[in-house]
């Protein structure tokens, strides 16, 4: 069997309806199991890039392939996690998590079993019957993650998912995400504007420049696994953050 990369972009351009270029000449491959963070100045098209992969938006030219298929055909493989938790306030936590299964008309026993498992995974079994307004920001984000995982995706697309959280909650969410990643072996595309977050989480960091968005750097992150909170205190972590920050500064000055 030929080993098809999980995500392939080939000379992708994306223009806004106004004609302004958002992304230009984007080419990269993501192998199965990689955790790729996308960093760049605001307005560099990081989020647009994720939307192209998810199929929510179409490339102006070039090709996007997910597991060898068009994004539209590969939708079952992917789940998207947005910057806000985007929960439906009229649904309980469990009903929010079960959304994708409900839309697919999964049998109720399967649905509730899977929802229970997902809530257990993110440690929210005790609030299954609560409504979103009763939860803290961090808990809402965990519900959002559980919802994304309920459809058993192979590829996770995360668009600055923890940007609205306080730093401590954010660090804890990062650790939880990594624990799940090591357990479930997804391929992850993660957009962020925090260098420390990108370094802590990813196996590889892609740095984009802006106006129009182009790939400026593509660096591997050589930090040991499993990554625990202590890694943040290590010298090699500091050095990596410094190195990536320098690259990012270079891009922003250009």
């Amino acid at each position: 069997m030929v080993n098809v990369p999980e995500v392939v972009l080939q000379s992708v351009d994306k223009r806004y309806r106004t004609g302004a270029a958002a992304l230009e000449g984007i080419s990269f491959e993501v192998e199965r199991g990689e955790f790729v963070a996308f960093l760049g100045p605001s307005g560099c098209g990081k989020s647009t890039l994720l939307r192209l992969v998810s199929g929510l938006s179409a490339a102006t030219s070039g090709s996007v392939r997910v597991n060898g298929m068009t994004p539209d055909n590969a939708r079952e493989l992917m789940s998207f996690i947005f910057q806000d938790s985007t929960l439906m306030p009229w649904r309980t936590v469990a009903e929010n998590v079960g959304l994708s299964l409900e839309l697919e008309h999964a049998a109720p026993p399967l649905r509730s079993e899977r929802v229970d498992r997902m809530l257990n995974l993110v440690g929210l079994t005790h609030v299954a019957r609560r409504y979103p307004r009763e939860l803290s920001g961090g808990m809402k984000m965990r519900v959002s993650i559980a919802r994304a995982l309920a459809s058993r995706p192979r590829i996770l697309l995360l668009d600055e998912p923890f940007a609205a959280l306080d730093e401590m909650t954010r660090d804890r969410m990062n650790e939880e995400l990594l624990r799940l990643y090591e357990e479930q072996k997804w391929t992850v595309l993660f957009v962020t504007h925090s260098v420390a977050e990108a370094v802590f989480l990813s196996t590889r960091i892609v740095i984009l420049s802006s106006n129009p968005g182009r790939i400026a750097h593509d660096v591997a992150v050589d930090l040991p696994w499993p990554r625990t909170a202590e890694i943040r205190d290590s010298l090699v972590f500091e050095q990596t953050v410094t190195g990536v920050s320098r690259l990012l500064r270079g891009v922003m000055q250009a």
Binding site: S54, G55, L56, R75, M78, S79, F80, F82, D84, T86, M88, L99, S100, L103, E104, S151
Partner: peptide, 14 residues
């Protein structure tokens, strides 16, 4: 309706 909720539904082929 929140655009992202619509996107979520679309992603799950609603």
């Amino acid at each position: 309706v929140d655009d992202n909720l619509i996107h979520l539904f679309v992603m799950h082929k609603a």
